[in-house]
Computed example of a mutant assay.
Amino acid sequence: MKIRVAIAGARGKMGQEAVHTIMKQQGMELVAVLDYKEVGETLGDTDVFPDSFTVPVFLELAHLHRETKPDVLVDLTSPESVYEHTKQALDLGIRPVVGTTGFSDEQLKELTAQAECDRLGCIIAPNFAIGAVLMMKFAQQAAKYMPEVEIIEMHHDQKLDAPSGTAMKTAHLISEERQTHAQGHPNEKETLEGARGADYTGMRIHSVRLPGLVAHQQVMMGGEGQLLTIRHDSFNRGSFMSGVVLSVERVMELDQLVYGLEHIII
């Protein structure tokens, strides 16, 4: 039986890539998309998909659920709406696969408890690129031996949140191996506020936003006479699709919320 998939945010750049990817999967069926405004009755009525794309478009998730009964909702929308989408999907018995960042710690705790109570799978992935997940895991392992760390994340200039979810997830993983401590000279002083970046348990995180970038991150670890740099680059949004497909498949086997793709690939 094919996995019935709905996508929220199908007209965005990631969403468009996900539509084409899901439609190519033999074990999946794209049954609906969720949009925040009236764009037509089907994807073919929009200006970004061929007329032959007859997948229906809905403005409300409850209506979408009644009409199409999806197993999974792939959410690629914005930080402003993703929490409500995820919560409502769980309420409706739909398994969320979320690629949008911006959840607060309290929201994650609430969704984790809800998924566990309802015994529904939910995957929230700050980054769907397999290489980016490996970068995070390698950095976590290296931090045990090289705890002086700075993270530089670089994204396109239309990204809404900073630092990125990937940078925050990386910092969190590193903090599990690295004892909290301040880095740099104890009398260090910023002559321009923000010059040293954000402070996460003493690590520094720097965000770059420029046109032409997609998604890039490097973790720099310094030691006496040496520097280790672990870097990942996504040059196009196709780099995220293998993780989307894997997550849709694996979320059907889960009965709890999983935060981070590293928990299902390693």
Rank of each mutant, 00 (worst) to 15 (best):
L108K: 01
T201D: 15
G212E: 07
L257Q: 02
Q226S: 11
L254F: 06
K189G: 12
K144D: 10
V98Q: 04
D161N: 14
F49L: 05
V251Y: 05
D255M: 08
H63W: 10
V214I: 08
V5T: 07
Y83I: 13
L92C: 12
R66E: 11
H216C: 04
E188M: 13
P186F: 02
E177D: 15
P70H: 02
V48K: 14
A125V: 02
M135P: 09
T77Y: 00
Y259A: 00
M136N: 10
E60R: 07
G260Q: 03
H20M: 15
T46M: 05
I265A: 07
G212H: 01
G102K: 09
D157Q: 14
V208F: 14
D233S: 09
T166R: 06
I124R: 01
G197V: 07
Y83N: 14
H263F: 12
A89E: 04
P186K: 03
A167V: 00
I3R: 03
L30F: 06
I151H: 03
I7H: 08
I3C: 04
L92V: 05
L160W: 11
V33P: 06
K37M: 15
I22S: 00
H185P: 06
P70D: 08
R119P: 15
A195N: 11
R237M: 11
T170A: 01
E176Q: 09
A142V: 07
P147M: 07
R95L: 11
E148P: 02
D91Y: 03
K109Y: 15
G12A: 08
H181Q: 11
S239K: 05
M1T: 04
Q179A: 14
T180Q: 04
G44H: 05
R11C: 08
T170I: 07
V245E: 04
K109Q: 15
E41M: 09
T68A: 09
S247N: 05
A143P: 00
T68F: 05
V208E: 12
A182L: 12
M23S: 04
A62E: 08
Y200K: 12
I151T: 09
L59G: 02
V244T: 09
P79S: 04
A113D: 10
A10K: 04
Y145L: 10
Q158F: 10
E150Q: 04
F138P: 11
I94L: 02
K13F: 08
G131V: 01
G243N: 02
G12N: 12
L73Y: 06
Q140N: 08
P163A: 06
Y36H: 12
E106H: 09
E29I: 01
Q114N: 10
A142K: 03
A32M: 14
V244P: 00
M252A: 10
T112F: 11
V251W: 00
H172D: 14
